[in-house]
Structure formats: structure tokens, C-alpha cells
């Protein structure tokens, strides 16, 4: 068994296009999912009985069904009920919804970990809850959620490989195509394994830097 580097070099454009698509899907649906997650978390905490129950059910729904099955439901089952999405659109929706369920739980845990005194101090100063949330709670929460969010981002980037099953032309799909043409699974799958690894390693490194930037008060304390 020998490793033929030429196969990768000959097909690098397809792989690059697949990687670009993977990054594109994640770069849009992860932020959307996180923002949706914040909304779901707030609904669950402050939405009252009905909306709170809805938010809870939403989280349970998307957390408790395998992502592959969610993708199938959206792409193969939803059309039977009149919801017809292109593979790419289905990919965005599935990724965003899945992300939001996890992000909501991360956000809720982080908000609960901030002492009640912070909110009370805001109220006592005459601030409304939206201002307290934006200026007092969320900036503090960022420090807490970054490490867990990095985890989530990395697992979602990996989960995006599942989108190949509904013919979204992302990295894994591109790889399968090349394998189909060249019958060289060893070279191609090794290559995309390395590409996924490189991508997630890059995300870790970037968020680590972000973590430091977002918590000036903790860093200056360390410097002191």
C-alpha cells in the first residue's frame, strides 16, 4: 500500500471548494445559531410559563435527536408536509437549529452563574433589563461561555460532514466524489482528516486569543 500524493495534488481544487463550502456553512449558521440560542435561553428564563415551556421543549427536541436524523427529517420528511428546501438551505436551517439548542443551554448556565447582585445593582441604578443584559450580564457571560462555545463550534464543524448525506457539496461530499472517481480512499480520506483537524485547531487557537481579549479585567488582575 503506498500513498500517492499526486491524487491530492490533482484534486486540490475540489477539496478547496469543499472546504470553502464547509467554512461558509459554519460561518453563517453558527453565529445565527448562537444568537437564536441567546433568545431561546432568555425565553426559557424570563418568558413566563408558556414561552418558557416552549423554549424548554425546543432545546429538548434538537438535543435529543441525532443530528443525522434531524437532517433527514428536514430534507426527506419535511417536503411531505410542504416544506421543500434546497440541500444548502436545509443545511443552514439544520445547523442553526442544532447549534441554537446547545448554545441556549450554555447561555442559560452562564447567566445563572452570574451573582444576582449584578442584576440588582443595575436595577438599583435605574437601568432596565435590556440594558442590564447588554452592558452588565452578556459581557461577563462571554468569558464563561467562550471555552464551552469553542467545544460546541468544533463539534459542529465536525458534524457538518453529515451534510454530505443530503448532497451539500461540502468537504466530505467533495472527498467522496474524488474517491468515486479515483478509487483512492486512503489518500483522500487521510487528506480531509488532516484538513478537518487543521480547521478545528485553527478555531481553538483563535478563540483562545479571543478569550484573552474579552476578559481584560481578569488579565489585568493576573498582571497585578
Amino acid at each position: 500500500m503506498q500513498f500517492d500524493l499526486a491524487i491530492i495534488l490533482d484534486n486540490w481544487q475540489s477539496l478547496a471548494a469543499g472546504l470553502a463550502r464547509t467554512i461558509g456553512i459554519c460561518a453563517i449558521s453558527l453565529p445565527v445559531g448562537f444568537l437564536l440560542g441567546v433568545a431561546i435561553a432568555l425565553l426559557r428564563m424570563h418568558g413566563g410559563r408558556l414561552l418558557g415551556a416552549f423554549a424548554g421543549a425546543y432545546v429538548e427536541l434538537f438535543r435529543n435527536i441525532p443530528f443525522l436524523i434531524q437532517v433527514f427529517l428536514l430534507f426527506f420528511v419535511a417536503p411531505a408536509y410542504g416544506l421543500r428546501l434546497s440541500p444548502l438551505m436545509a443545511a443552514f436551517v439544520a445547523m442553526s437549529a442544532y447549534t441554537s439548542a446547545y448554545a441556549a443551554e450554555i447561555m442559560r448556565g452562564a447567566l445563572l452563574s452570574i451573582p444576582a447582585g449584578q442584576t440588582e445593582a443595575g436595577y438599583a441604578l435605574g437601568l432596565g433589563y435590556p440594558t442590564i443584559l447588554r452592558r452588565v450580564l452578556l459581557p461577563q457571560v462571554l468569558g464563561y461561555i467562550l471555552p464551552t462555545s469553542t467545544n460546541l463550534t468544533i463539534s459542529l464543524v465536525k458534524e457538518s460532514a453529515i451534510l454530505s448525506t443530503i448532497t451539500v457539496p461540502e468537504l466530505t461530499y467533495a472527498a467522496q466524489n474524488i474517491v468515486g472517481r479515483t478509487y483512492s480512499p486512503v489518500e483522500v480520506f487521510t487528506a480531509i482528516a488532516l484538513i478537518y483537524w487543521g480547521l478545528t485547531a485553527l478555531i481553538s487557537a483563535l478563540t483562545k486569543r479571543l478569550e484573552i481579549r474579552l476578559q481584560p479585567h481578569l488579565i489585568s488582575r493576573r498582571d497585578n
Binding site: Q118, A121, L125, L127, T131, P139, Q140
Partner: peptide, 23 residues
């Protein structure tokens, strides 16, 4: 408050400026 409840992510100056600017 007993436990001050200053906003830890803001400087002392920013702590003092938030409410006057916002409210």
C-alpha cells in the same frame, strides 16, 4: 450593597458612567 456589586468587567470609571449615560 453589602458585597459592593460593582461590575467586574468595567473599570471604576465605567462603573460610575454607565447609569448616568444610559438612564
Amino acid at each position: 450593597f453589602q458585597h459592593f456589586n460593582l461590575f467586574p468587567h468595567m473599570t471604576i470609571l465605567e462603573n460610575c458612567m454607565l447609569a448616568p449615560m444610559s438612564a
